[in-house]
């Protein structure tokens, strides 16, 4: 498709769809900058264990692989959901959203049980600088996932009550951007925190 011959200065503002999603993209990038500060803190503090347990003693790779699989699959089902949103097929949107929600819940459940186990074993966030940084980084990511799950529920309520208005469709597509971005952050978490521990 050839670009229109109208000069850039005379084209007028971009459509709302483009403006909203570009703004959300900027928000996601700034959210990733927030995570980068937490990653920097973790990288600096990961060996400051104050005589307490170290990463390789605490982390189970099997659980991390399961969490990664859940989040990756939920990212995929969320992508398929966004295709169903564009076809405006409510039944398919509910189905794929339910799959995304269930996988997200399994992820959060695994993380909560890991945190509970660590705290019960005396390796809570107050034990050492390493564990403070670990709980802050992984906990912030888990909080984002939990908030995303609430957002998904709200969006399903909006689809059920007011249907596929342009406003609702924009929000649903922003949600899928958010969910994919969280999966990208999780790649950093499992690589640096769980696999990089030595």
């Amino acid at each position: 498709m050839d670009p229109p011959a109208v000069p850039l200065s005379q084209r007028g503002p971009a459509s709302t769809d483009v403006v909203v999603r570009f703004g959300f993209w900027l928000f996601l990038l700034s959210d990733i900058v927030v995570f980068s500060a937490l990653f920097a803190a973790y990288a600096v503090l990961s060996h400051q264990t104050a005589g307490g347990p170290t990463g390789p003693q605490l982390f189970e790779r099997g659980r991390t692989l399961l969490e990664t699989g859940c989040l990756l699959t939920s990212s995929f089902t969320c992508g398929v959901m966004s295709l169903a949103v564009q076809r405006r097929s409510a039944l398919q949107v509910y189905g794929w959203a339910a799959a995304t929600f269930a996988l997200g819940c399994v992820f959060v459940g695994l993380e909560v049980s890991e945190f509970a186990g660590l705290i019960a074993a005396g390796a809570g966030p107050t034990r050492s600088a390493f564990l403070s940084a670990f709980f802050t980084l992984v906990g912030t990511h888990g909080l984002h996932v939990s908030l995303g799950l609430c957002w998904l529920l709200v969006m399903m309520a909006q689809v059920a009550t007011i249907g596929f208005r342009p406003m609702v469709m924009r929000r649903l597509l922003c949600f899928s951007l958010f969910w994919h971005a969280l999966d990208i952050v999780w790649i950093g978490v499992f690589t640096i925190v769980y696999l990089g521990a030595r």
């Binding site: 498709m1 483009v18 993209w25």
Partner: peptide, 17 residues
């Protein structure tokens, strides 16, 4: 949407299903 996509594209936007 179609007219705008010639100039700019938002992240996550699909060309066709």
């Amino acid at each position: 949407d179609d007219s705008a996509s010639a100039n700019d594209r938002a992240p996550g936007e699909h060309r066709d299903g």
